[in-house]
Design a protein around this nucleic acid. Structure first.
Lengths: 291, 291
DNA sequence: CGGATTTCCTGACTTAAGTCAGAAATATGC
DNA sequence: GCATATTTCTGACTTAAGTCAGGAAATCCG
């Protein structure tokens, strides 16, 4: 371990502590202690159930109760019993609460925008931040099944097509490729999985089925800042699990030799190369795996 | 301003807050509140004067006084009047204090090492962290005059020679170049300046004089993660100021066309190209500036 | 149904952090 | 020398945050 690396990480910690501290201070400007503001923001971000707020913010049950009473007295929040289990309670923002939440969001966005504006190399900075955030938030990466037309899915697919366009010598035009109908990548025929890191989509994979025992893997992509963390493998495992769940026994996929990481992954994880099985113009390698 | 950029910055904030919070929690493990631990560490890092601790940590005068009394009662710190002004006081660690400080340093280093160990792309991560830390800590970059044989100076010079080796088609061997004697880059003949970002050296420039009215600028270098922030210009301005201070009226420098950023900077800041003035094998462009 | 469990709540605490006024010691400028 | 300013300190506060024990309501399970 080079001693220099430790100094660099610690410098990073200092720089970033100052930035985060400044954000906290700006949150104080709305005349409410930080604890209450954090609860309000958790609710605004869709965390309604009291138990889940407690877990997320790591608060004591009694403390959270009191903070919620405070927000109720301010008229920002109402709590109702959970419809399915009346012991639990669900908090929701009132109209005034939504406005207050929006004000916090605006503060947060302003700070982010100011940070970017005062740095001349914004794009490079953003890429570096993505890399750091993904590496630090590695344990918090979740893989979720979504509609392939959802915002998160489209974000990944757009990036995937753009990358293919850059990496294939021929360029890439979606319309020429066999673009699976969305319904083929949703239950009950297939599935579409997105990897999320703190809500930001950073990878995807599609399982395209026709209701038969054979299905295809499509659109495996991992955001550059998240490569090297084993995420592609994790996505593939989840896709295979979904396939088994749907009663599929054989998986196929096509790929291109311009994507050597992908070829390497498939060869290492039980896929065997087979003959061409479609007339799509882009792929030049074809694989199969029996589940 | 792309909306996506804000989401990315905010994700970064969240990821990093969790990391920093974990470090704070680990500091709590030594049975001392965070406030006292921060004061102890500030003193350990060489911040002796009470006033400077107050500024650095942003503490109220009364609060800091109490924290210092607490550390004194623990036997970790002694305070003495400042030799030049007995109103001010200077805090110093006792032997027990030094041990306790070392324990905090170890905790901090352990966390940094653990972070690096659990991330498979350590080197890329470090570079990204450098970039973020430099961008965020931009206002805190200081330029200081040092001995050209100091640790910080050598760090920069080593990186500078390595980069020349990569960028010059011929490679680079210091011994073939006219390596200025250290004394030529120190008062009263010259100066050596280092840019520090939170203590980490990220750039340098040397002013090499012979006691005459003409002197040379040597070894201008900025760390890759800090480029694009105008640091080279700032270093040059400081070097020119030092030259004026030493009564120097004409500056010269040599450089190579493999370093186009440097050529561009010189041309924009009042340097005029002149004929070759030495027989150093590496440079192919020569500049002069009258102060 | 009835005891055990879960979920949230209240009340009574503790601790850390921060604020503010003014006192004491020392330095500075005329 | 003396008024004024600076630096640190003490004491008396406030506020935020967190802990813990126990209670009420709802649910679960035999």
């Amino acid at each position: 371990m080079p001693i220099d690396a430790l100094r660099r990480i610690r410098r990073f910690n200092r720089a970033v502590t100052a930035e985060v501290g400044a954000l906290d201070t700006s949150f104080l400007g709305r005349g409410r202690p930080l604890g209450a503001a954090r609860v309000l923001n958790a609710i605004g971000h869709g965390r309604g159930e009291v138990g889940s707020i407690r877990d997320y913010l790591g608060l004591d049950s009694g403390l959270l109760s009191r903070l919620l009473r405070g927000l109720e007295e301010e008229g920002l929040v109402v709590t109702l019993p959970h419809p399915a289990d009346a012991r639990r309670r669900v908090a929701a923002l009132t109209e005034a609460g939504r406005q207050e939440f929006a004000a916090y969001e605006a503060l947060s966005n302003d700070r982010a925008a100011a940070l970017l504006a005062r740095c001349p190399k914004g794009d490079e900075l953003l890429r570096a931040m993505d890399l750091v955030a993904t590496a630090l938030g590695r344990e918090r990466i979740t893989v979720e099944e979504t509609d392939p037309r959802s915002e998160a899915a489209l974000h990944c697919l757009t990036a995937y097509y753009a990358e293919l366009g850059r990496r294939l010598a021929t360029g890439f035009d979606v319309s020429l490729s066999r673009d699976p109908e969305a319904a083929d990548m949703m239950r009950p025929r297939g599935a579409f999985l997105v990897a999320l890191s703190d809500g930001l989509p950073i990878g995807c994979v599609g399982l395209k089925g026709k209701g038969l025992e054979v299905a295809e893997i499509k659109r495996l992509w991992v955001c550059p800042s998240a490569r090297g963390l084993g995420l592609a493998r994790r996505l593939m495992e989840r896709a295979e699990a979904a396939a088994r769940d749907l009663g599929i026994t054989t998986l196929r996929l096509d790929t291109n030799s311009a994507l050597p990481e992908a070829l390497h992954l498939y060869r290492r994880t039980g896929w065997v190369e087979i003959a061409r099985f479609n007339d799509d113009p882009y792929p030049d390698h074809f694989f199969e795996k029996r589940l």
